[in-house]
Every structure is written in structure tokens, then in C-alpha cells.
Write a protein that binds this DNA or RNA. Structure first.
Lengths: 244, 244
DNA sequence: GTTCGTATGGTTGTCGACAACCCACCAGGG
DNA sequence: CCCTGGTGGGTTGTCGACAACCATACGAAC
């Protein structure tokens, strides 16, 4: 009955189900752009190339639909979602609602332990210090910080809502224009400090941070919109601008 | 090539896939409490009773997991989620973030057409007038209003986030204590009026409305928590209090 | 030329079968 | 008595097969 006789504290090893593996593989492939936007995801084709059955692929695709990376049309199949400018802005609009809502909840509720968030901030600082551009490590640290932030609100449903936006966020960050580093770090630090003071302005700080990111994304693409000039907010972002 | 030769404007009739039918059936059964909380959802059993195969049931269950009605443990199966008091409060906490975020977006953005929202409000008024207690019709009208509200924010991702909370909301409303009707209607009306004035206080109004609902739910159950007094926020809400 | 019907290849929707797995039970040894 | 190891029933994980379906191309009739 001694529940803690295993004092080595080992992290539970988890076997990955077939669906899980396929899910990860497809998600990474889409985020990294190895599968182009608009491309169809054929079940049998993917199943054979991944060396698995259709069921696993099907379930993985269903999950990717939830994450917004894939679009599904009944009897027609799944397609890698084409992210219009409006879509990219919407990711940040939704994140603004969720994350600022979470922060609002944190400052309104009882005091919370901020150590995990501070640690995430430090890691973000260090990672950014060693990378002069937006690498996967920086992206991971950034996501981590925002996840830790929402976690403090102690709302499983807000966490879930945020989780469905993580994949899209990662995708966008990969194509993010250079963020002014000083501002980037200080934005995050400001949020932490505001939380330490239990400042009512904290929700607005995180919101403003996200709005800035959104504006950068919109700004980067302005010349594209100017080039086509037809229907702004409808062009996929160019993965291969300048290639071939 | 004349795309509008069919001037009758008929609403697209949609055949329901097997999965869709199973999904609806299970969802209603859970919301109405015909399947008790904690009850396991066995795939073969459900498949045979519903006269379908396991695939349909499986996919439906996956969707219900997303909607928060069902909990899933790998290799163990699916179980109707047991909603603790904390869970019920969390539904409203998440809704507060999403809906007040949506309203914040509406008042910050360009003016929008409020006619649909006004219509929803009227319908809510009329429905409530003819029902002295919380019926399915009232619930539907309420949900409709809040959906219309978020819709005005023109954010697909916020709509999606809200959609995942609709099922749980319906479930909670069915067991909602009597809401003071006058306040109930005026709360909604106040939001619409604030939007008409493009009032900065509109987000706070909807947030307060949701907080009131949450408090009512918490209040109703206080004596239960007092009765057990052990771990508050962990008891499922009693479907059969006073029966048999 | 346009419209309709029809054939056809490829894809998804749905199903049942088999393997992998979890869990409760029981027997045996310390 | 407690722990270990094995066993069996029931459930999920995964797969391939067949049916239903969609889109296109190709004629035929007007």
C-alpha cells in the first residue's frame, strides 16, 4: 500500500498509438509546409506511405480538422487548409480573447504561484539570446510561455480552446517577420510583472502584445494584397515566394 | 451558366451520415440524462442498439469528447463525463472569456448590423413569455442569442470555441435553477442596447450576466457541498435528487 | 451550341474480423 | 496475510473489403 515506494520518480513512458504517430507526422508536415496548402489528403495514399491503415489516418485527419489545419468536405475528402490573411489575423483575434480572458481571471482570482511562468519567461529569454532569428526553439519557448500563462487561470476549457490554436500559431510563427527582439521580450516580461503586482492592466498588456503580432503579420503581407488588389484577405500566404 | 436561375431559394437538404445521426442521438441522450454520468459508452453495444457499425459510434464519441460531454481513456473506453461543480463553473468562466472577448471585438471594430441579434432577443422574449419555467424552447432561444452575439465578432475561431461549449451549456441550463425572469431578459436587452451605443461597457455587461448565471449554479448546490463537506467541487450534479 | 443522360475511375462511408490490450480473478509461494 | 504471476473474458486498436458517392468525360438529342 505504500504508494511512493518508487522514489526514483520516473516519468511515465507512453506508447504512441498508430493514430497518434500519424497525427504528429501529418501535423509537422503541414506546419513545416512539406505538404502544400490546398493539397488533398488522400486516406489510402497516406496510409500506404506511412505504412498503416486507413483508420489511423482518418482519425488523425479528424483531429487536424479540429486544430484548424485541415478542411474537410464530406464525400470529397480532406485538404490542407489555405490560410488567408483574414485567417491569420483571426488566430490572433481568438488568442487575444482567450489569453486576455485568462489573465483577467488570474488577477481577479486568488493569488497564484507565478514561478512556473517566471521560469518560462527565463527560458524564452535564454533561447532568444542564442538565436538571432525565429527558430523552432524560440517558437517552442514562446508557445510554452503562453500555455503556462493560460494554465494559471485554472480553466480546463480555456486551456482546451488555446490548445486548438497552438498548431496554427506554430505555423504562423514559422513565417513570422522579424519581431523586434527588445520589444518581444519586454512584452512578455511586462505581463509577468503586471501579474506580480496583480495589476488590472495585465489583460490589456497581453492583448496589446498579441495585437502587435497581428499587425506585423498583416503588415508583412500588405504588398501582396497590393499586388493582387482584388479581394484582400483571401490569398494564401506564399510559402514559395521567390523560389523556382 | 446562370447561377441564380433557381429563384425559389431553397434551403439545402442534407442527408445525414451515419456518424452524424449517432452523434445527435448520443448527444441528446447525454444532455437529457438518459445516459447517466459516469456510465461507460461501449462501442459494440451502442452500435448494435443503434443498428450501425462501430466506426460510426467511434467517430461520434470522438466528437463528444471534443464537446466535453465524454471522457476518454485509451484502451479503456469512453465514459459520460461527470460534471463536478468546478466543471460547471468552468463552463461559464470559459464562456465569459469568449463572449466578452467577442463583444470587445465588436465595439472596437467597425459598426455591424445588429438586426439579427435584435431578432434573437425578441424571440427570446417571446419564448420566455409563454413559458414560466426553463423549457427546451427557452434554452434554444438563449443559446441562439449567444451564438448570434459571437457571430457578430466575425471570428470563425471564436465561434468554434463557443460551439464546443454549447452542448455543455445546454446540459447545465436543463438543470438551471429558476433565473429571475425580469433580470434574465433585461440582462440580454442591456447588452444589445450597449452594442447599439457602441458602449465600452458592453463586454462587462455580458461578463456580468454570465457571472450571475455561474453564481446561481454554484448557489443551488451549496447545500450539497455542505452536506458532504469533504471535497467541494467534486460531486456530480444530482440528476435524481428526490427521486425513488 | 447547349443540355441532358450515362459511364467510369477514384475517393470516402461503413462494416465486420482479428490482434492487442486492460482488468479482475485466482492460485501459489513467501 | 501479502505479494507475485498466470489466466480468461471483455473491450478497444487496427486493418482491409465492399458499397455509396462524387466528379469528370463523352456522346446523343434537341
Amino acid at each position: 500500500m505504500s504508494p511512493a515506494a518508487d522514489s526514483w520518480r520516473l516519468s511515465s513512458v507512453e506508447r504512441a498509438s498508430m493514430t497518434e504517430q500519424v497525427l504528429r507526422e501529418l501535423r509537422e508536415a503541414i506546419i513545416e509546409g512539406r505538404i502544400a496548402q490546398g493539397e488533398p489528403l488522400r486516406e489510402v495514399s497516406l496510409a500506404t506511405t506511412l505504412g498503416t491503415g486507413r483508420s489511423a489516418v482518418r482519425e488523425a485527419i479528424r483531429q487536424l480538422v479540429q486544430e484548424g489545419l485541415v478542411e474537410y468536405e464530406p464525400h470529397r475528402g480532406a485538404f490542407v487548409r489555405i490560410m488567408s490573411l483574414a485567417d491569420r489575423l483571426d488566430v490572433y483575434a481568438a488568442r487575444e480573447a482567450i489569453e486576455s480572458g485568462a489573465v483577467r481571471r488570474i488577477v481577479a482570482g486568488p493569488p497564484v504561484d507565478l514561478s512556473a511562468l517566471r521560469a518560462a519567461l527565463e527560458e524564452l529569454r535564454d533561447t532568444a539570446r542564442f538565436h538571432d532569428r525565429v527558430t523552432d526553439a524560440v517558437i517552442a519557448a514562446d508557445i510554452r510561455f503562453h500555455e503556462e500563462l493560460v494554465r494559471l487561470a485554472a480553466s480546463p476549457r480555456l486551456e482546451r480552446a488555446q490548445a486548438t490554436l497552438v498548431a496554427e500559431t506554430r505555423m504562423l510563427l514559422r513565417h513570422h517577420p522579424v519581431y523586434p527582439w527588445a520589444t518581444y521580450i519586454s512584452d512578455h516580461a511586462a505581463v509577468v510583472e503586471a501579474l506580480e503586482r496583480r495589476d488590472d492592466n495585465a489583460p490589456e498588456l497581453i492583448a496589446e502584445h498579441l495585437r502587435l503580432s497581428a499587425r506585423l503579420i498583416a503588415g508583412e503581407l500588405e504588398h501582396e494584397a497590393a499586388g493582387e488588389a482584388a479581394r484582400p484577405g483571401d490569398e494564401p500566404f506564399s510559402e514559395e515566394r521567390g523560389r523556382t
